[in-house]
Design a protein around this nucleic acid. Structure first.
Lengths: 131, 131
DNA sequence: TATGCACCTTGTAGCAACTACAAGGTCAAG
DNA sequence: CTTGACCTTGTAGTTGCTACAAGGTGCATA
């Protein structure tokens, strides 16, 4: 399978796939006579894994770790569990941050009843000293 | 007031302040005889505004817009309102995305009862085809 | 006066994770 | 035999900073 096909199959741009290969996230593909990359089902599975982990918010470094772990079938599952737990904590923190941000934005909208910037509470509230 | 003072007053690194000046987000400061930047209270207010907007998740481009709007006191407040509304929508969408992500991570953790990677559901669930 | 230290200057390069080109090679269809 | 879709490499751009390096300035202290 050529890079374009793999790209469509995984919803990844061809350039991103080449980037992953350069970064050592994906193993290099075989080459055809005309030097085109030629991917196997193993590559498809690997890229699927990578994309899914990325979608779940894992960093490239974390994906590297996950890949290394999943290669060594005899490792304790605990290590993977730990990575997931860390990621979960980060995500939960982000949700909290965004929630208070959302509340502030909502407040700003509600307070805007003037119709000229001169009296606009939104601009005022942005100009307030930082907490 | 010198750059270090302004940095402390706003919780911004001096390098970031110089960066904002380069980017035209902040007006250039006056210079002392020895070529040090010399900031006024207006600069303090402007930087406070910028930092607050950035904390609220506005992009640099949006901050530029907000600054331009807040300069023209006779513009309808509606334009600012619209920007805030857009930002709010983005934030709400991000919260939704992160929430489903959180749910998936929680599921992964719960399903991991094996203790060897060979049977690890987490690794399995990462290898599943992309939705 | 000298010296040490914190602060300032400019310029450049690095980060994450791609994305967008440019300039050219390959291949199948019409 | 030409068109057009695909592929190749390499390089540079994106966002919003951050981190140097190499040198100048200002002020307190020995």
């Amino acid at each position: 399978m050529r890079i374009g096909e793999l790209a469509i199959a995984t919803g990844t741009k061809a350039e991103t796939i080449r980037y992953y290969e350069r970064e050592g996230i994906l193993p290099a593909a075989d080459r055809t006579d005309s030097n085109y990359r030629d991917y196997s089902d193993n590559h498809l599975a690997a890229l699927t894994f990578v994309r899914r982990a990325r979608q779940l918010g894992f960093s490239m470094a974390q994906v590297r770790e996950l890949l290394a772990l999943s290669d060594r079938v005899d490792n304790p599952c605990q290590v993977v569990d730990e990575l997931v737990r860390e990621q979960l904590e980060e995500v939960e923190q982000k949700i909290l941050d965004l929630s208070s941000l959302r509340d502030e934005l909502r407040l700003m909208l509600r307070s805007c009843e003037a119709n000229r910037i001169g009296e606009c509470r939104i601009v005022e509230s942005l100009a307030r000293p930082l907490r």
